[in-house]
């Protein structure tokens, strides 16, 4: 593509990629530990997925098939822009909207409904990498707490939630313990997606561009949401007032994570699959029947 002339493959220079690659290997070797790196300037604002983008650009090569997701959809503005930027700067790669066809997936806020495979890598865009930041302002002290596996302050925060609201009120970015040591921020995925990290067949990488951290959940690793023995972890409840599971208004699926919309004409609530590829696939299967 002519627009790519003048840029190195993958936009970043090879030294920048090498540094990220070294960082990624350390991140995989120390599951859940946030490895610092010198996040480079990208031609977009920090906080728009620059961490995920730098990871993808350091991983991708000719022959890879990339899927980019923003809040479950391939057609949201963040996904469209990142995908077209990667297509422009990485001539020779393929892109797709299908989870089945992709071997590299960059995502914001969702892990696909369909279980990922061994040959896939998923890259998550992370705004706030450290789950301890809400209870400890000093990074020096947070690093010591992480090293010692000392998450008592975080547990007190969860306990205070239960005392005040009878429930842990964290809706997304639920702190999750990896391989019995480090607690990580799984990026703003809903609770629904947290169990998908446990014993995932695919490697999960996290990139925080603004905060300059990379971390990972290796495949087949323990990923346990932080809870108390007598207060089990629970995912979102999509039952209506009659305790019936709401279906997706488009495909009728009753086993996916639903987004809530307000119908602009009659003001009623409408529920639809958040994962657009999953929704399309359910519709296609019904068409075949």
């Amino acid at each position: 593509m002519s627009a790519s002339v003048g840029y190195n493959f993958g936009f970043m220079d090879e030294y920048a990629k090498k540094e990220i690659r070294r960082t990624v290997l350390k991140a995989v070797a120390i599951p859940g530990y946030q490895v610092p790196y010198s996040s480079r300037e990208m031609p977009m604002g920090r906080g728009f997925g620059t961490g995920g983008l730098q990871l993808t650009l350091s991983l991708i090569g000719v022959g890879d098939n990339l899927k980019v997701i923003d809040q479950g959809s391939d057609d949201s503005v963040n996904a469209v822009n990142l995908r077209s930027f990667i297509e422009m700067t990485c001539p020779g790669i393929d892109t797709t909207t299908s989870v089945d066809e992709a071997n590299l997936i960059q995502s914001r806020h969702r892990i696909p409904e369909k279980p990922l495979r061994d040959d896939q890598v998923i890259v998550m865009q992370v705004p706030y990498p450290d789950p301890l930041v809400i209870v400890e302002p000093s990074e020096d002290r947070r690093k010591i707490q992480h090293g010692e596996g000392n998450y008592s302050k975080l547990l007190v925060k969860l306990y205070e939630d239960i005392v005040q609201f009878d429930e842990i009120t964290i809706s997304h970015r639920y702190p999750t313990c990896i391989n019995n040591h480090y607690v990580l921020d799984p990026s703003p995925i809903p609770r629904w997606d947290v169990p998908k990290m446990h014993q995932s067949r695919a490697l999960i990488l996290f990139g925080a561009g603004r905060e300059k951290k990379i971390y990972a959940v290796p495949p087949y690793s323990k990923a346990e949401p932080l809870v108390f023995d007598d207060v089990p972890f629970r995912i979102e409840d999509f039952r209506d007032e009659h305790s019936v599971r709401r279906p997706c208004a488009r495909c009728g699926c009753t086993s996916s994570f639903l987004d809530e919309f307000i119908d602009s004409e009659n003001g009623e609530k409408v529920y639809q699959c958040s994962d657009s590829d999953w929704c399309d696939e359910q519709l296609a299967q019904q068409g075949e029947c």
């Binding site: 090879e14 290997l25 090569g61 000719v62 290796p218």
Partner: peptide, 18 residues
């Protein structure tokens, strides 16, 4: 060559992940 190093990195990532 950068493109071969990218392929080699994916091999190393696979080795370290599994």
């Amino acid at each position: 060559q950068p493109d071969k190093q990218q392929q080699m990195f994916r091999v190393l990532l696979e080795a370290m992940s599994r």
